[in-house]
Amino acid sequence: MGDLGLSKDERETIKRFWPYVRNVTLALLIAWSIFAVFIHLLAMFDWWRSIKILNYPLHWLVGTQVSIIAYIIIIFTYAYLISKKEEEVVR
């Protein structure tokens, strides 16, 4: 393994940390895909476009504002969850 080889403790740490990282990443990628793709497909439907919030048609509001805010929330959720778990595991 050389200098880079992992010790037994480090392997145990990975077992406690990595599955959590993988699951959080996957869950947030699914959330991201909703705001990156799927929600915008609703713009094909008249009923969706006819809904208005603050005088904006919903598809416009989702495309220009809501999605971007959702991306910010997803990134900070990820940073918070992983950093918290990191502290817990390393402690």
Partner: peptide, 24 residues
């Protein structure tokens, strides 16, 4: 109009992928 929205969400949504898959 609305057809230019891919540029808005495209140039911002990539940061989620960057944060989750690459940056750390």
């Amino acid at each position: 109009g609305y057809d230019a929205v891919p540029f808005l969400i495209g140039w911002t949504g990539g940061y989620v992928l960057l944060a989750l898959l690459i940056a750390p």
